[in-house]
């Protein structure tokens, strides 16, 4: 990305700091994803934070570098898989004899375990769908820019 005449990849300080920060951003995203039951956050926030880490990489280095890490097909797959995972949990609970999205039937022995499993999977689906969607939108915009 070009900002004020100078290419971002030539900016040493930005590059070094981004490189140091990105692992922590991704780790924080995972923390928000899996700690959403106890602290603020959940799949949606985690997905956005996770995508923001990748977007930062794409801004500081280049879109081509980012697409080597996360190729287009992976993003497309993630968008669909996230929604499918959420809906799939609903269908699974239907097939196990409960109502749609009734997580308690997911574990035949312990309803509480089933509840937690269902919420974990559903939040994972939200996180996957949101982070992939954010990346897809970023790719679409940035890809057009680099195509010009």
């Amino acid at each position: 990305m070009k900002i004020s005449g100078m290419r971002m990849r030539e900016k040493l300080i930005v590059r070094v700091i981004a490189r140091a920060l990105i692992p922590f951003i991704l780790l924080f995203g995972l923390y928000v994803q899996f700690h959403g039951d106890f602290g603020p956050g959940g799949g949606f926030q985690a997905g956005v934070i996770f995508a923001a880490g990748f977007v930062l990489y794409g801004l500081v280095f280049s879109l081509a570098d980012l697409q080597r890490v996360v190729p287009w097909p992976v993003v497309e797959l993630g968008v669909a898989l996230g929604l499918l995972l959420y809906g799939g949990v609903g269908v699974a609970s239907l097939l196990l004899g409960g109502n749609f999205l009734d997580y308690k039937v997911l574990d035949s022995n312990d309803a509480m375990q089933g509840l937690h499993l269902g919420i974990l999977l559903v939040e994972l689906g939200v996180g996957l769908a949101v982070s992939s969607s954010m990346l897809a939108i970023f790719y679409a915009f940035a890809g057009r820019r680099e195509a010009r």
Binding site: V79, A80, G82, G125, V126, S133, A136, I137, A140
Partner: peptide, 20 residues
Amino acid sequence: TLGEVAVIVTAALGVMALLA
């Protein structure tokens, strides 16, 4: 929430169809 996720996915699909 399932509906909201569907909305986000639809938005992403729309942007992908229009721009990419």
